[in-house]
């Protein structure tokens, strides 16, 4: 690549008050954030939160309806070609070319970036090796399993040696083995200083991979921060789950002003590391099934976006 590599910490993506409206409906309703070089930035949210719409604007697929968007300090509307030549996108849908073999998928894609043939071949071999796809080089794409197809999609997204890698739900629908392998590869890429933007439904994945993340809902950003910080700030460090809870426990908690969420026959108590409450629950309500556990990003997510189904 002939571009200057971006220095660490430099702002790679600057999003200001970005909006996307379809026929009067706001898919993205004014979001702002910035991503620095070398960071892994997560966009989280329930289905329909506006994650994919936001991502499509970032790589210049969909024009923004309002606000501004700068990638590598370039404007997407004018410099989309230069931006896309430095970005790798792993789309949510399988967009691999089923008419071509595994190796051809990489080589032809390199052609779209105008990468010279010998360089493309070298790069393709490297990527096949990195993603353990060497034995499948002549396979038809339609014959690949979900995990293999996703690895190839990611390999293809890296063909232009991008500085910024955009991953839209990279592990959805994969088995645990494939998912862990993919995480491993993403960690390896991070170690090489790549910048990532990631959307996912898996909070474990976000907590593990992301330095910083936002949780979106209804096209807006609800919170932004580092995973551990967000957990600490919004649900505290520890959680008690009680099944078969009764009014007695509810009253007890309300009296002590402890936050909790009430479900059909379960209480999720955010005791924020308060040992006294924990002791009291242990002692006074031990007849019910109690689980004492650390809080996770999933607790934050559900607290903020609610527990009702979206679709």
């Amino acid at each position: 690549m002939d571009q200057q590599p971006t220095a660490a910490g430099e702002i790679i993506l600057q999003v200001d008050n970005l909006g996307k409206h379809y026929n009067g409906v706001s898919a993205v309703a004014g979001i702002s954030f910035a991503v620095r070089a070398g960071e892994c930035f997560g966009l989280l949210g329930p289905n329909g939160a506006g994650k994919t719409s936001a991502i499509r604007m970032i790589y210049g697929f969909a024009p923004p309806s309002s606000g501004s968007l700068r990638v590598f300090s370039l404007d997407v509307a004018d410099d989309w070609r230069r931006i896309r030549s430095r970005v790798g996108v792993c789309q949510q849908d399988n967009t691999l070319d089923p008419d071509l073999s595994v190796l051809q998928n990489l080589l032809i894609f390199a052609g779209y970036f105008q990468i010279p043939a010998d360089q493309a071949r070298e790069r393709a071999e490297e990527l096949l090796h990195f993603f353990a796809l060497e034995k499948k080089r002549e396979a038809k794409v339609g014959e690949l399993s979900g995990g293999l197809a996703r690895r190839l999609t990611l390999a293809r997204a890296l063909i232009n040696d991008p500085e910024l890698i955009i991953l839209d739900e990279p592990t959805t629908g994969l088995d645990p083995q494939s998912r862990h392998l993919l995480w491993e590869k993403l960690h390896a890429l991070r170690a090489r200083g790549k910048t990532f933007i990631l959307t996912t439904h898996y909070m474990e994945e976000a907590a593990q991979l992301c330095d910083r993340l936002v949780i979106m809902d209804h096209g807006r950003i609800l919170i932004e921060g580092a995973p551990t910080g967000l957990i600490e700030a919004h649900v505290g460090s520890s959680i008690i789950e009680v099944s078969g809870a009764d009014q007695e426990l509810v009253d007890f908690l309300a009296e002590r002003k402890v936050e909790f969420d009430r479900m059909a026959d379960r209480l999720v108590i955010y005791n924020k590391g308060n040992a006294e409450i924990e002791q009291a629950v242990r002692a006074g309500f031990h007849s019910r099934q109690c689980t004492f556990r650390s809080a996770t990003l999933e607790d934050v997510f559900l607290r903020l976006t609610g527990r009702e189904l979206r679709e």
Binding site: W80, R82, R84, V89, N94, T95, Y112
Partner: peptide, 14 residues
């Protein structure tokens, strides 16, 4: 069906 154009639209092709 194949979403081939979607894939191409992530590259410097218009």
């Amino acid at each position: 069906y194949q979403k081939t154009f979607d894939g191409m639209m992530t590259t410097p092709l218009s």
